[in-house]
């Protein structure tokens, strides 16, 4: 075990492109590898993914392991776990990081179990304990009511990381790295999982319950036009629009987006409450939100008690200006 060295990133590729989370992981991995003065490697698994290697190097990896096989086209637990097991046993990294994604949350615990080590899922911070060279992993627990810092003695130390928790490096295409092709060595008979169909949800935007950003309008929005404005903002933030009960009752917004005691329960990462007073019936549906941002004309509104950031003012002026500024910052 003592010869476990380096940080390995399990890189996800979608439509032939490095995913955002993979870029962020490479950024975080680079930093950890530097702290440890060890190597950062990336593991790319899939079918027709070998050409991604240079991009991964540009984002910070020193060494790329590519396992490219038609059998690996779809993510299937049994196939992927076998591949990860094979590569990890061959490379012996100290740390293995994955994204907290559909794949990561399924693959990480099972692979860790097979490798006789532990894993921590959905982390938001990673540090190195300089004394023990152990990875310190911070993750929210109790539904966001508390945080825990974990570490483990077993190697490799496996963790999945929440999207947007880490920062990607600015890609540097001049970076040099080594690419190692590893044979998948899979027995098709041993793969028992079958992906029959992939269904992309029909919703125009993101499903309210799943959205990591929710923009909610309250009674103060005053009419259906206001909700169109909120929708635009939500689109810019890649989020969804919600509403408190009065706008739904008044028919300004569809019933399906009502958040609260008598509606949907959401717990997005960012919850922007626009002209929402913060009545407990409404808060019932969104108090699990990690960060509440309140925009309200009434400085005494209860919503400010729940909010992390607040703006006191007229939403009709604030929302367009806010949207414009966000667009400007995003384009940078």
């Amino acid at each position: 075990m003592a010869d476990n060295k380096g940080v390995m990133i399990f890189v996800e590729v979608i439509d032939g492109k490095l995913t955002n989370i993979a870029q962020e992981l490479l950024g975080a991995g680079r930093k950890l590898a530097n702290d440890l003065s060890e190597e950062l490697s990336a593991l790319i698994v899939g079918s027709g993914v070998a050409n991604i290697a240079p991009e991964a190097i540009a984002y910070g990896a020193d060494k790329i392991y590519v396992v490219d096989a038609p059998l690996l086209k779809d993510y299937r637990t049994d196939a992927y776990v076998a591949v990860v097991e094979k590569v990890v046993k061959q490379v012996n990294p100290r740390i293995l990081l994955l994204g907290q994604t559909t794949i990561g949350r399924d693959l990480a615990p099972r692979a860790a179990c097979r490798l006789i080590t532990g894993a921590i899922l959905d982390c938001i911070a990673l540090d190195i304990d300089t004394a023990t060279k152990q990875l310190l992993i911070t993750k929210p627990v109790y539904g966001g009511n508390a945080r825990a810092v974990y570490s483990m003695e077993t190697l490799p130390q496996v963790a999945t990381v929440r999207a947007k928790a880490m920062t990607a490096l600015v890609p540097d295409s001049s970076r040099k790295g080594q690419v190692v092709i590893v044979d998948a060595g899979l027995d098709p008979a041993a793969i028992k999982t079958n992906v029959l169909q992939k269904v992309v949800a029909e919703t125009t935007g993101i499903k309210l319950e799943d959205a990591s950003v929710v923009v909610t309008g309250g009674r103060g929005i005053g009419g259906p036009e206001g909700f169109k404005q909120l929708e635009e903002l939500a689109k810019v933030l890649k989020g969804a629009v919600g509403a408190t009960r009065p706008p739904c009752d008044a028919g300004w917004a569809p019933d399906t987006i009502q958040i609260g005691l008598t509606g949907k329960i959401v717990s997005p990462y960012v919850y922007i409450a626009v002209a929402v007073s913060g009545a407990s019936q409404h808060m019932a549906g969104c108090s699990g939100s990690k960060n509440i941002i309140a925009i309200n004309r009434d400085a005494e509104a209860a919503i400010f008690k729940e909010a992390r950031f607040g703006v006191v003012g007229d939403w009709k002026k604030i929302i367009p200006a806010f949207e414009a500024k966000v667009k400007e910052l995003q384009s940078k």
Partner: peptide
């Protein structure tokens, strides 16, 4: 929870 106010912060 012994109360009907699901989601109360109090």
């Amino acid at each position: 929870r012994g109360h009907p106010w699901r989601g109360t912060t109090l």
